[in-house]
């Protein structure tokens, strides 16, 4: 029986770096990279719209990723699965958060922080703390998700101060 595929974030970030895909790790995993001890089952990436197909090709090739029926990869937000792991890929040029703050990929990428770990052959980029706070300000109908976003913002503000 074939084992269920498992997503490996470190391997994924290594592949993104090796292939030179302009992509940011966002969401809670990025919050954790700034120092907040938070955990999430979702993986979120914001990829340069021009490089979207390269990211999808890598996920399909390396992780045997599964596309849910009807999913369209040309949409600005695409969700794909590797086993039980959910991977959200954002490929919009610009996002506008709940405060009306516009976040352009190119600008957020310019301001992003490189995380390097030579011991693990790892190098990737996450948004700076201010941009990550802004990216957390998206309304959710789920009160638990909203509470999580608030917790992340609180951690990030504490880490910034």
């Amino acid at each position: 029986m074939k084992d269920e595929p498992e997503f490996d974030l470190i391997r994924c970030l290594q592949e993104i770096h090796r292939r030179g895909i302009r992509c940011l790790l966002i969401g809670r995993w990025a919050v954790a990279q700034h120092g907040a001890p938070v955990v999430t089952a979702d993986y979120d990436f914001w990829v340069d719209p021009k490089e979207r197909n390269r990211l999808f090709a890598m996920l399909l090739e390396v992780f045997d990723a599964e596309l849910p029926p009807g999913v369209r990869l040309d949409k600005p937000i695409a969700t794909i699965y590797v086993g039980p792991d959910k991977i959200d890929c954002f490929s919009t040029r610009k996002m506008v958060n709940a405060d009306g703050q516009a976040l352009a990929f190119s600008e957020v990428y310019e301001r992003s922080v490189e995380k390097r770990d030579p011991g693990a052959d790892l190098s990737f980029r996450v948004p700076c703390i201010d941009d990550l706070i802004a990216l957390k300000k998206f309304p959710s109908k789920d009160p638990v998700k909203h509470a999580r976003n608030l917790e992340d913002i609180r951690y990030l503000k504490t880490l910034k101060s």
Binding site: I10, Q33, G35, A36, P37, D117, K136, R154
Partner: peptide
């Protein structure tokens, strides 16, 4: 989305913050 930072960095944050990127992920 307004929230105040913690008064001081909690111990858990201080310990987690110093880990390497790969260690944080694992």
């Amino acid at each position: 989305f307004e929230t105040e930072p913690y008064d001081e960095l909690p111990e858990q944050l201080r310990r987690f913050r110093v880990l390497s990127p790969a260690k944080k992920i694992s």
